[in-house]
Design a protein around this nucleic acid. Structure first.
Length: 357
DNA sequence: AACACGTGGAA
DNA sequence: TTTCCAAGTGT
């Protein structure tokens, strides 16, 4: 066993956090926790893990749920494809694999939503397979201690870090080694202000020796953020509201929001209705009705988009709106109790909470 | 290979 | 305010 592995595990046993998914070898629970924790901090994911564990104690329970139920529980966590892929995979395992998880890295990798990291996590934590989990923490720790400056999001870098991690991994405790390396990155060798003074690797750390702690790991710059201008139509009719299911590609797939107009600029220019929508009924509606209220602008920041959002309130007679969207199956008229039960983008959820509940 | 895909917390 | 980025995956 390597000196590195011994020191790392020694540190881990002294400093590890007590997290619920660390007390089980159930691949279902480990899968659940790992998907939730993708690109997500423990503090943010923990309540969701507990809620899912309670709602769906077994993978059959998960498989028997509707996608809407799953998305509603997931509401607010972001990256909703994780929830949709989990539901797909739960049904797949329930129906085609006799509700038994695959028991090795190679087969786990075939599951939808399970990539290299998650397959390694389940394989090592649940089944003791010797395969390294290489996540953002691992990139950071290895790049610093061993002075590796290959970009962590380049093809070569990804390959190189995986090789290093799989060289270092403990023969006898691969699961503990993986947990330890990630935990060390998460709470000690942090992105900013790492605790170098009390670091067990302070002597041999290349980044420390070369005074490059702040430069490592190297990451190629990400794509730039685009601005979008959303105008939500909050159309009330007899204490019900028109709600729209988001279908197809793009953000918030499978979630519910309001009928939406999108413009190239901040203002919604009612003289350019033709440019806002193809929908004839909606055009007519906009021409014949004026909003009773227009909200302030909300800025909602996604990883790759800046959304500038206004809400336009309309209160209409039944006769006027009865056929407005009734022939389109992605639209439905719902009361507030029903709307509350639907999965929604967090900005919509917060808006409703502020003005309607 | 490069980009899409959420949200919230920290500095 | 801005920027980074957190237990990544799919296409």
């Amino acid at each position: 066993m390597s000196d590195f592995s011994n020191k790392l595990i020694e540190w881990y046993e002294l400093n590890k956090r007590d997290l619920p998914w660390r007390n089980t070898k159930d691949p279902y629970k480990i899968w659940l926790s790992e998907i939730i924790l993708q690109q997500t901090r423990v503090q943010q994911g923990l309540p969701y893990y507990l809620a899912f564990e309670e709602a769906f104690p077994t993978i059959q329970n998960f498989a028997n749920a509707t996608e809407e139920e799953v998305l509603r529980l997931w509401q607010g966590l972001g990256y909703y494809s994780r929830a949709r892929n989990m539901h797909f995979t739960a049904k797949h395992i329930s129906e085609n694999l006799s509700s038994e998880f695959p028991t090795n890295f190679k087969d786990l990798l075939k599951l939808k939503g399970v990539g290299n990291y998650t397959a390694a996590a389940i394989a090592s934590f649940a089944f003791g397979e010797k395969v390294a989990t290489v996540d953002g923490n691992v990139y950071r720790v290895l790049s610093r201690i061993f002075g590796i400056d290959s970009p962590i999001n380049s093809t070569n870098g990804i390959k190189e870090f995986a090789e290093v991690a799989n060289t270092l991994i403990s023969d006898t405790q691969p699961d503990t080694f993986n947990q330890a390396l990630m935990e060390f990155g998460a709470i000690h060798c942090t992105p900013k202000s790492p605790n170098c003074l009390h670091c067990p690797f302070v002597q041999e750390c290349e980044a420390r020796k070369q005074n490059r702690v702040g430069e490592l790991p190297v990451k190629l710059k990400k794509t730039k953020v685009t601005d979008r201008y959303f105008h939500y139509l909050v159309i009330e009719e007899n204490e019900k509201y028109w709600i729209k299911e988001r279908k197809g590609k793009g953000i918030w797939q499978g979630l519910y929001d309001f009928p939406l107009l999108e413009s190239d600029h901040k203002e919604l220019n009612l003289e350019n209705i033709d440019q806002l929508t193809e929908d004839l009924e909606l055009k007519t509606f906009l021409q014949e009705n004026a909003p009773s209220q227009i909200s302030e602008m909300y800025k909602h920041i996604l990883s790759h988009q800046r959304l500038h959002i206004h809400f336009y309130h309309y209160k209409v007679d039944i006769e006027k709106s009865v056929s407005l969207f009734s022939e389109k199956d992605e639209y439905s008229l719902m009361d507030l109790d029903n709307i509350e039960k639907q999965p929604k983008p967090i900005i919509i959820h917060n808006y409703l909470n502020t003005y309607f509940y």
